[in-house]
């Protein structure tokens, strides 16, 4: 949680849980990151991370909506997403994806929670 003195803004996005919409997720994420002053390379990293996480989530989601919240403070961008999970699927991060995510984002998580597949990731940056 953000310390009391920092302001926390949130942008919420709901898209159909379909791969065609990953583009919108990336675009929104990069827009929010740009507002925080991320440089073009950091934004590219974030886009890769969002691409991986959103696609993985959608892969195991049943038809439904993917809900994503982008929250920002002065020092970090936190993204959480969730979608209803399909029956009988396993949720896991492939080794290649894990390597990629480790390289592009400070912290991430993918898990199931009460009928939902949920992801979260954080990119921290020094205060501007």
């Amino acid at each position: 949680m953000a310390p009391a003195e920092t302001r926390e803004d949130a942008v919420r996005l709901r898209v159909p849980a379909a791969l065609e919409y990953v583009r919108i997720v990336r675009l929104t994420g990069s827009g929010v990151a740009s507002r925080l002053g991320f440089d073009i390379e950091e934004i590219e990293n974030l886009r890769v991370a969002l691409d991986e996480l959103a696609s993985m989530t959608i892969d195991v989601a049943s038809a439904g909506e993917l809900e994503i919240t982008f929250s920002t403070t002065d020092t970090e961008l936190r993204i959480v997403g969730r979608a209803p999970i399909a029956k009988g699927v396993e949720v896991g991060v492939e080794p290649l994806t894990a390597q990629i995510l480790k390289a592009v984002i400070d912290d991430y998580d993918l898990r199931t929670d009460d009928g939902f597949v949920c992801f979260s990731c954080v990119t921290r940056r020094p205060p501007i």
Binding site: R23, S30, D51, S55
Partner: peptide, 10 residues
């Protein structure tokens, strides 16, 4: 414009 360049998985 960045989106045009780097659509990874989708």
């Amino acid at each position: 414009a960045m989106e045009v360049g780097g659509a990874y998985r989708s």
